[in-house]
Amino acid sequence: MGASELITRHSDNFEEDQLELERDIAAILLTTETAPNLEILERIEIVTAECAFGMNIFKDLFAGVRDVIGGRSAAVQKTLRDSRRTALHELKKEAHAVGANAVIAVDLDYTELSAAGNMVLLVASGTAVRIASNPASAPEHRP
C-alpha cells in the first residue's frame, strides 16, 4: 500500500471518526435542573468550557460608532453568537469525555478581559449527567 493510499484511508477514517464523535457528543443541554420525561440516572460532575475571543479593530470601530449613534452591531452579535456556539460545543465534548449524555443547569458567563473591551471570556458550565436514552425505559422513581 502506497503512502497516498494510507493518507486517503486515514483521511476517510478521520472524517468518519469526526462524524461519529459529533453524534456521540450531541448531548442534551438544559438551563434547568430537570425537564418533563427526563430521567437522570447519574449526576457525574461539573463540567466547564472556556472561550476567549477578541473583536478585531474594525469591529471595535463600528461598535464604537454604534455606541454613539445607537443601533445594533451585527459584527459584535455574530462574534458573541459564534463564541456561544463554540463554548457549548466544547461543553458537550467535556461532558462526553466523562461519560455523560446530557448537561443540566447550564450557565453562560461573559467577562471582559481587557480595559479596551476588545477581549471577552465566555465560560459555559453545567452538571454532566447520564440520562435514560429512552425515558420510557428509565427506572421508575419512587418517593
Rank of each mutant, 00 (worst) to 15 (best):
G2V: 06
S4C: 00
S4N: 06
E5R: 12
E5S: 14
L6P: 01
L6M: 09
L6S: 14
L6E: 07
R9P: 02
R9I: 03
R9Y: 05
H10R: 02
N13V: 06
F14C: 04
F14D: 03
D17F: 04
D17M: 08
D17W: 03
Q18M: 05
Q18I: 06
L19S: 12
L19M: 09
E20Q: 07
E22K: 04
E22C: 03
R23F: 01
A27K: 04
A27F: 01
L30E: 00
L30I: 06
T31I: 08
T31L: 08
T31N: 11
T32S: 11
E33V: 07
E33L: 01
E33M: 03
A35F: 10
N37D: 13
N37C: 05
L38C: 10
E39I: 06
E39V: 08
I40D: 02
I40Y: 00
E42H: 08
E45L: 05
I46Q: 04
I46M: 00
V47S: 07
V47K: 02
V47Q: 05
V47F: 08
T48E: 11
E50H: 11
E50C: 06
C51I: 03
F53K: 12
F53S: 12
M55D: 07
N56A: 11
F58C: 03
D60A: 15
D60R: 12
D60Y: 11
D60S: 15
L61W: 09
L61Q: 10
F62C: 07
A63F: 15
A63Y: 15
G64N: 12
R66W: 08
D67W: 00
G70F: 10
G71E: 08
G71C: 10
R72E: 14
R72F: 11
S73C: 15
S73K: 14
A74M: 14
A75T: 14
V76D: 13
V76Q: 07
Q77F: 15
Q77C: 15
Q77R: 15
K78I: 02
T79D: 15
T79F: 14
T79G: 15
L80N: 14
R81C: 12
R81L: 15
S83V: 04
R85V: 13
A87E: 00
A87P: 08
A87C: 12
H89S: 11
E90G: 04
K92D: 02
K92R: 15
K92G: 04
K93V: 13
E94P: 04
A97T: 08
V98P: 02
V98M: 10
A100H: 01
A102S: 13
I104E: 00
V106S: 14
D107V: 10
D107N: 07
D107F: 02
D109G: 09
Y110V: 04
T111Y: 01
S114W: 00
A116Y: 07
G117W: 12
N118L: 14
V120C: 13
L121D: 02
L121H: 04
L121S: 11
L121I: 04
V123Q: 05
V123W: 03
S125A: 04
S125H: 03
G126F: 03
G126C: 00
T127Y: 00
A128G: 11
V129Y: 00
V129T: 03
R130Y: 05
I131V: 10
A132C: 05
S133N: 04
S133L: 08
S133T: 07
N134H: 07
N134L: 09
P135A: 09
P135W: 13
A136P: 05
H141M: 01
H141L: 05
R142W: 03
R142H: 05
